[in-house]
Design a protein around this nucleic acid. Structure first.
Length: 419
RNA sequence: GCGGGGGUCGCCUAGCCUGGUAGGGCGUGGGAUUGCUAAUUCCAUGUUCGCAAGAACACGAGGGUUCGAAUCCCUCUCCCCGCGCCA
């Protein structure tokens, strides 16, 4: 959500933002509803004022023991009128809020304009592995080594599910262990969040379209499966006034992620690259506004360092205005090399959401109790999505005789050097 | 799941029985006063609308009764205590 006052004062910027994001949004309707909403507030406030004044008169009359019948009758009619107007106001408010919740976030000025072809590679690390044999993809590798049950998963759950098996289970746990150790050493506090959260929390974290395309709902309950621990982490401090001295909070969250993947039909159909359920360690930071861009750079640096330790070649991409999520003001993606696909593929995403989520969830801070509160900034970044990372490990570290070498950093967690 | 007790403006708390402008303390900021440290005292300290003056709203959430609800009634929610069930 954006500050309505700011929208009114920066109409040109907002129109440009919508254009650059290539998003259909009825800004004129929003302005109209905002105007109507404010008018309604003024009208109903005046009636309430009248009511309050009469209430005092009634009280005084009763105390004095005189007759208050005529004032009470007058107040009855004012009350009735107010009830009627409040109904109208409530409807206006609902309409306004519904629309206001769908306007995308501002864009940082460093974001390139255009669609995904305008994405900008800003860094590249590592040498692409060369093989003197025919390279296999992770599906063939895991089949040969008996590391996945894909057909049986399709039988028991459907497409885009999997059973990890044997050493792949251990590799997954090793990545998680290593990731948590790594973030702990870098001053992060670990969290394991709820995997289901209520509608209000989810609505603060995501934009409406995501409910349809991404989020699973629990039947007959006000609960939704998180699509990422970000959803549970951002709402954790909802309706709170944080102590400014505690910022930035650096949280490391580990959780499974559940995604519908609606609209991804045909893409990455096989294997464990694009699935309905995967594990992810997330960095989540609440920061002061003046510090958030600095934090954003820190977070992407941490993620890059992690993949360097895993010896996986990657490139870091600054997403263009048309390719970003609507809640983010600026996003870096990390794409790692996947030898089986002969391509860089997305494994991590690092976003600064400014005060967009904080406004929705009322996450504020102040340094001293008599100061005005400010909205905190929220930032999220993948540290590691383990299933995708295992695809990269299997494909990049495969050997001629069909085995997979374990990256140095993971060997002590795996207790072996090769699968 | 059952029974009991709770949720009040950052924190603590009064008010609820008996409906009539939500009070006090702490913390924080500012002013005044007194040789100093300190003490004392006054003002400010939530949200929304408004350029402002000001006004409205706010007692866990949502309904209801009433001219009027923190207060009475209903539903939900979270916390605490006891019992039950349970990995």
């Amino acid at each position: 959500m954006l500050d309505m006052k700011m929208i009114r004062e920066n109409l040109e910027n907002i129109r440009n933002m919508l254009k650059y994001r290539d998003v259909q949004f009825d800004l004129d309707l929003l302005l109209e509803l905002d105007k109507k909403r404010r008018e309604m507030i003024i009208t109903t406030d005046e009636l309430r004022k009248k009511k309050n004044e009469m209430s005092i008169k009634i009280s005084e009359a009763k105390k004095a023991g005189s007759d208050a019948t005529s004032i009470i009758q007058e107040m009855q009619s004012v009350s009735a009128e107010l009830t009627k107007l409040e109904g109208v106001q409530q409807n206006t408010e609902l309409e306004y809020t519904k629309l206001a919740l769908t306007i995308p976030n501002l864009l940082d000025k460093s974001v390139p304009q255009g669609d995904s072809t305008a994405n900008k590679e800003i860094r590249k690390w590592g040498d692409i592995p060369k093989f003197d044999f025919e390279v296999k993809d992770h599906i063939d590798i895991s089949e040969n080594l008996n590391l996945l049950e894909l057909e049986r998963a399709a039988k028991t759950a459907g497409a885009r599910f999997y059973y990890l098996k044997g050493d792949l289970v251990k590799l997954n746990q090793s990545l998680i262990q290593f990731g948590l150790d790594f973030l702990s050493e870098n001053g992060y506090t670990m969290f394991q969040p709820p995997y289901m959260i209520n509608r209000n929390s989810m609505q603060g974290a995501v934009i409406l379209d995501d409910f349809e395309d991404v989020i699973y709902k629990i039947e007959d309950q006000d609960l939704y499966l998180i699509g990422t621990s970000e959803h549970a982490m951002v709402s954790m401090h909802g309706n709170e006034i944080l102590d400014g001295n505690s910022l930035p909070t650096k949280y490391a969250a580990i959780s499974p992620c559940f995604r519908k993947e609606a609209g991804a039909h045909g893409k990455d159909q096989k294997g464990i690259f694009r699935v309905h359920q995967f594990e992810k360690i997330e960095q989540f930071v609440f920061s002061k506004p003046e510090d958030s861009w600095n934090q954003h750079e820190n977070m992407i640096a941490i993620t890059e360092e992690f993949f360097q330790k895993l010896e996986i070649p990657y490139r870091t991409v600054l997403l263009s205005s048309g390719d970003m999520g609507k809640i983010s003001a600026k996003t870096y993606d990390v794409e790692v090399w996947m030898a089986g696909q002969n391509a860089y593929r997305e494994v991590a995403s690092c976003s600064n959401c400014l005060d967009y989520q904080s406004r929705r969830l009322k996450i504020r801070f102040r340094d001293k109790t008599n100061e005005d509160t400010q909205y905190a900034h929220t930032l999220n970044s993948t540290l590691v999505a383990t299933e995708r990372t295992m695809v990269a490990i299997m494909e990049n570290f495969q050997t001629k005789d069909g085995h997979v070498n374990i990256p140095n950093a993971l060997q002590k967690y795996m207790g072996k050097k090769t699968i």
